[in-house]
Structure formats: C-alpha cells, structure tokens
Design a protein around this nucleic acid. Structure first.
Length: 491
RNA sequence: CGGGGUAUAGCGUAGUCCGGUUAGCGCGCCUGCUUUGGGAGCAGGAGGUCGUAAGUUCGAAUCUUACUACCCCGACCA
C-alpha cells in the first residue's frame, strides 16, 4: 500500500488529487487552471478516443476540424447561447508583441489591435453553423454528420484536474437534418452511444435522461445526459447530447430546399464528451491502493515482472516471459515486460498496482522449476499461482472477468446508493448523509427546483428516459407530479 | 469573483511568533559494494537567489506592502 496517500474515507477530494498526481495522469501547469496531461493519462484518453471514434464512424459520422477562434459577433447571434457562455470566454484582442520600452521583456503592441476581437471557442456551434450555411442548400445535402476532436477553453473560477479545467479536450458532434424527428433521433442515438461506451468500456453504469430547463445547454431545445454516480455519493455528468431544434439554423440562416421545393431551416444536434471522463473513470473504480483501470481502457493491460538473482536466471525467465508476452500481444493485449534491474520486484508491484494495471504476472526461479506463474488481479487484489501452460488464454479470460467485475461492482454501488424518497425529511436526511441518487417526485416548476438546490445543493440530474409514469406528490411543494426525477449533489 | 489558509532542494517538511555565522531533516537523485518472491542495507556525494517584486534594517527565510500560484469553503460550470 502506498505511503503518504490519503484514503477515500479520510478525505475523498484529497484522495482524488493525490491519485491523479501519483499515478502520473496529469499535473497543474504554469498556466492557471490548465493542466498538463502526462503520457500515462493521455494514453487512457487515446484509448477512449479510439473506441468513441469508431462508434461515431460506425453510426455514419465523419471527422473535420474548425478553427479555435470565433469572431465575437458570431456569439451574439443566438441569444441564450451568448448568455450561457459570455462569463467564461477568453478573448484575443491583439496579434503582435513588441519589445518593452525598457527592454525588459515584451509588451502587447497596441498598434496591433484586432478589428474584430476573437473568442477562444468554449464550444463550436457558432463557427460551425456559420460554415454549414455554405454547405447546405438541398435536402440532398442532409443529413450532415460531423464530429471534431478539439480543445476548448472555458475560463473557470475553480478548477480541478480532469473534472474542471480552463482548457480541456473533447469531441463535439454537430449534425444537420431535414426534419425535427430525425434530429431528435440523432440526439438520442448519440446519447445511447455514450451510454454504451460508459458501460462497455469504462465499466460505469449511467442513467440516461433529459435535463430540466435550468440545466439545459445554452441554445438547446432539449438536453439529454448520462449521469454516473461517484464513490462519494456525488453525481457526475459524463456526456451530453442536445437537440437544438432550428435555433442555430435561424441564427445563422441555414436553409435548405426540401422535396416539396420549399425553403426551410435545418434541424440540428450537438453532443460531446470530454477529458472529464477520466475523472469519472478514476472516481468510479479506484481504491485506497491507487488507480484501478478497466482492462478495455488500460494502456498496459498486463505487466510481467521477473524475479531473479543472477543474469542466467533472468535469461531463463525472459525466455518464458517473452513467449507469454508475444502470444498475448497476438491476441491484441498490451503487455509490458518489465525486466529493468534498476528497480526491485517489490517496488514494481507497488508501482503497477498504483497505476491500476489490471493484471500482473510474476515469474521467478521457483516458477521455472515448477512450471507455474503468479497471477495478480488489481480489482480484487487477489493473487494466484497457476500452471504456466495456456496462461495466455487464462489471462484473456481474466481480463474479461475484471472488466465485468468492475462494472458489476459499480452497478451494486449505484443500487445501494439509489433511494426512493417520498418525504422532505427523508430527502434531507439522505442528501446530508450518504448522498447518492434520490428518486423523488417533483412538481415540474423551476421555482421548486431552485428552492431545493438552494436548501440542499441537490440538483435534478435527469428526468429519466423510458421510465413508466407514476402519479405522486412533489416532495417539496406537495403539488401533483407525474413521474419521479433523479436528484443528487453533483460535480 | 468573495471568505479562509499555504508557499523553504524534484517531493514532504523544521526554522518564521521573538531578525543575527556555513538554512536542518526524511524521501528521492548520483557513485560503490552487498542485495532482489511486496516500496532493500551500508558508505560516500550532488542539489537551495527560502514563491516573485519592492520596502524597513548595520543585517531579512523571519518584519511590512503588493503580486502570483496552490489548497479548503461559497457563487458559476462539462
């Protein structure tokens, strides 16, 4: 077990911060609010990207790239959009520096003021819709299904590595459709893609639902989201998908001729997930021994550690180890054989454990004699001595089991921390206590939602999709309600 | 952005209240030897403009002011 490392119980948020740093995922940079994603953290992000990108392509999308800068005037075209983002925009006002008069460093050259200031994109709807205007004339140009992988900047007051940083990496899909139904379907399809990704790859169960008006994306008609429950009982929005109606089409005058030869505005969606997913991943599975990664996203899925005294031993062990390595690699498993003699085995065990490598294989002289190998699984911390024959098949099976076990554990956790709540007293008691997802009736008004948030810091995470309606009374106002919504304190 | 706190070697810290030699310790790092099945041991060694800037003083890590960064709590947000 790692020393000098907070436990979840002692201080959950300290535990998270320590973990991100100590597992070499990311660190704070010289720029306020911006992080450096280190190679190990970035490797996880790359795996997420690869899986998501494939899912996007499989659903008919293509990638493109739009500028990081957006003319200021574009922003004001869509009223609620400006309002939503105005407070957190970085603005470029000049394009040149010059030597300071006293020759100490450089200053902004006031003569190089931009005619029109540029906004560093907090999201790309405006620049993209201004571009789509030229790409779309006919229903034959639709649907337009484009995604971009990019960085965005939102000038946040308080930042936390991965969870909220001033600059972050994400993907944003922006689609145009001929009909409202088709666009709405697209938004829901992508919500499903996100949910599938979260569950199959990240091993995180998520709730799918609709956001209330107050939590809606600036400029959207409807915002859908997936919500995950973290180990401290707080919710984390892990992805959003928006049905934008014709709002941006109208703001940017994007019209097409339909089959009836009539001019109409196109229907739009946008959807995104960000490096915040790394925060979700960490907080869902990791423990007091460090990071725990689901095999499907682990940069190194299997590490092989030799234990040896002499070079002859190392040679013999390496022969077996490399055979295992290459046969696993042929099955698409990423395997690291760590034969460094600069670190001791015990040091390596702790290190890989901390970094969440799902499976560790240890080979020593005893194993060579007996034809065995030690297998350690990170999720349960269990150690087994197995026969070395067929070890590749056993390991592949074990990786599947670990993936499944992490998902099941996360589901169990969520079940144990989801509660039907019917009275205000119960609501208060639960929200102040263990937290979790609270299923409660709500009268549907923004006033009640705001009051509850004010008094408890709990927000409506989603109005669940596909849940049967059930009459009830609002836990706060007592007014009639047609279904339960999900409350939680959130990141 | 409001309230509170912190800043001394790569990391963690002592010293700061009460100014006074070469700023101490642990981890890590380098060299050598012995070690290697859960973070090795011994010996030697390198590494500091005490966050930045200005001020007070014969003298500042220590006192004053401003700035910056980070942490905690609020407001805002993916």
């Amino acid at each position: 077990m790692a020393k000098d490392f907070s436990t979840r119980e002692e201080n959950y948020s300290q535990w998270y911060n320590d973990l991100v740093i100590r597992a070499d995922l990311a660190e704070n940079s010289a720029v306020r609010g911006c992080m450096v994603i280190k190679p190990y953290g970035f490797a996880i992000w790359e795996k997420m990207q690869a899986a998501l990108d494939k899912m996007f392509k499989d659903t008919g999308h293509v990638n493109a790239y739009f500028p990081i800068f957006i003319p200021k005037s574009f922003f004001s075209r869509e009223a609620s959009h400006v309002e939503g983002f105005a407070k957190e925009c970085a603005v470029v006002t000049h394009y040149r520096l010059k030597n300071a008069p006293d020759n100490k460093g450089v200053v902004v050259d006031e003569d190089a003021k931009l005619e029109e200031e540029l906004i560093v994109r907090p999201t790309s709807e405006t620049i993209i819709w201004d571009t789509y205007k030229n790409w779309i004339q006919s229903y034959r140009d639709l649907p337009l299904l484009i995604n971009q992988w990019a960085n965005v900047v939102r000038w946040e007051m308080r930042t936390r590595l991965f969870l909220r940083t001033a600059e972050f990496l994400w993907q944003e899909g922006h689609t145009a459709h001929a009909t409202s139904e088709e666009a709405l379907n697209e938004a829901l399809t992508m919500l499903d893609v996100y949910a599938t990704f979260a569950e199959k790859f990240m091993a995180i169960p998520v709730l799918k639902g609709t956001k209330t008006a107050s939590e809606r994306f600036a400029g959207a008609i409807e915002t859908f989201a997936i919500e995950a429950l973290m180990q401290d009982g707080k919710a984390l929005q892990a992805g959003t998908s928006h049905f934008l109606g014709q709002n941006f089409a109208k703001a940017f005058d994007v019209k097409f001729l339909n089959r009836e030869n009539q001019l109409d505005f196109v229907w739009a969606t946008s959807w995104g997930v960000s490096t915040r997913l790394l925060g979700a991943l960490i907080m869902s599975h990791s423990d007091d021994h460090g990071l725990v990664l689901p095999p499907k996203l682990a940069p190194t899925q299997v590490v092989i550690v030799p234990v040896f005294k002499t070079n002859e031993q190392l040679g013999q062990i390496s022969e077996v180890a490399r055979k295992i390595q290459s046969s696993l690699q042929q099955s698409g498993i990423s395997v690291k054989y760590d034969d460094r003699d600069t670190q001791k085995p015990g040091w390596k065990f702790t290190e890989y454990e901390f970094k969440g490598v799902p499976v560790r294989l240890v080979l020593g002289p005893r194993d060579l004699e007996q034809g065995t190998i030690e297998v350690f699984r990170r999720d349960t911390l269990e150690k087994d001595i197995l026969q070395v024959e067929d070890i590749d098949r056993k390991v592949i099976h074990l990786l599947d089991q670990i993936q499944e076990n992490l998902y099941q554990k996360a589901i169990d956790f969520r079940e144990n921390n989801s509660h039907m709540v019917d009275t205000w007293e119960e609501f208060l008691q639960k929200i102040e206590g263990p937290g979790g997802f609270l299923y409660a009736h709500w009268d549907g008004t923004a006033e009640t939602e705001a009051k509850i948030k004010e008094e408890t810091k709990a927000t409506i995470r989603v109005i669940p999709l596909g849940q049967p309606l059930a009459e009830g009374k609002c836990i706060y106002s007592g007014n009639p309600s047609s279904q339960r919504v999900i409350f939680a304190r959130a990141y």
